[in-house]
Design a binder for these strands. Structure first.
Length: 292
DNA sequence: GAACGGACCTGCTTGC
DNA sequence: TGCAAGCAGGTCCGTT
């Protein structure tokens, strides 16, 4: 269940592993894993011969800048590598990007393979097939092709994000704060697990209507969002999910969930049984005593 | 515009 | 034991 900290972990890993490496080819094993272009062949034609310059994360999206590989010898006179567009990835629920070797036996749910020099491979494995990859042509803006980028709200670690932003975005809305935290158009990157954790740390009930929250509560919410996400990034993502980083290693955030997945277990602060309700179509966990 | 629920999927767990 | 139903969740889309 990759949320912002897991996607950030993947992004940092890929920047270590794939920097300036050339994509020599690939294989699309599941056509619908490619969101753009229409065919797997044109996707592969777009990325083949490119080098991966840099990975970036935006919300839960991964974006790679592609340049002409040095083998292509098409540098500009200024020595700047020719722009070859980009590569977009969304892992959705079960997607994994694994840095492996071409001779590693194919996993049952391997969907897309990208081949690199020295027998290396970046393999997209995705059990539930909701994950997507895009090739972004050089002349197009990323948000034209990866349309989900258009609707994203602020990055939680950007300077535009503060408690005033939350007040401005939430003071007229009538949905639950849980639904608001899952809304990628307000703050980008929170998912079901961290939304529950953030609300616990803020002492706010998940079913509270956003317009009723006080400035003090929204200040606590702002602080909790940054703290929870930063702690998870520092630990390399969760273990209480089947998340793997590009080297196939689980994160270290596990075992320390305050409420997520802890229905009927005692609250770590007050021992009250954690409750689970359905909110915004998602399972939602909270402490009825600490959150009010 | 805003809120909500269903659809998309597969594998695992639960219930009869 | 066997089988069906329920559940997991990020995003998109249609409906209200």
């Amino acid at each position: 269940v990759p949320e912002l900290p897991e996607v950030e972990t993947v992004c940092r890993g890929l920047n270590q592993l794939t920097r300036d490496r050339e994509i020599e080819g690939g294989e699309v094993l599941l056509a619908r894993a490619i969101a753009y272009p229409l065919s797997g062949d044109s996707f592969l034609a777009g990325v083949t011969g490119c080098a991966i310059a840099q990975w970036q994360r935006r919300g839960k999206y991964l974006l790679a800048q592609l340049t002409q590989s040095s083998q292509g010898a098409l540098k500009s006179t200024e020595g700047i590598l020719k722009n070859r567009g980009g590569l977009g990835v969304h892992l959705r629920m079960t997607g994994q990007l694994l840095w492996t070797t071409k001779d590693t036996p194919l996993q049952k749910h391997a969907r897309v393979r990208l081949f690199f020099t020295e027998n290396r491979e970046l393999r997209f494995v995705d059990t539930r097939t909701f994950g997507k990859m895009w090739w972004i042509p050089p002349a197009r803006a990323p948000q034209e092709i990866v349309t989900g980028l258009q609707k994203l709200g602020v990055e939680p670690f950007s300077t535009e994000f503060d408690s005033d932003y939350l007040i401005q975005k939430l003071h007229k809305r009538q949905k639950s704060i849980k639904a608001a935290l899952l809304d990628q158009g307000i703050v980008a990157g929170l998912g079901n697990i961290y939304a529950d954790e953030v609300l616990f740390k803020s002492g706010i009930r998940p079913d509270a209507i956003t317009s009723t929250l006080t400035p003090v509560q929204l200040q606590r919410l702002y602080t909790a969002i940054r703290e929870v996400l930063q702690t998870a990034i520092d630990k390399g993502g969760t273990t209480f999910s089947d998340f793997l980083n590009p080297l196939g290693v689980n994160g270290n955030y596990g075992g320390v969930a305050w409420v997520y997945g802890r229905k009927n277990q005692p609250c770590r602060i007050c021992q009250t049984a954690i409750e689970r309700i359905k909110l915004a179509g998602r399972s939602t966990h909270y402490c009825p005593r600490c959150q009010n």
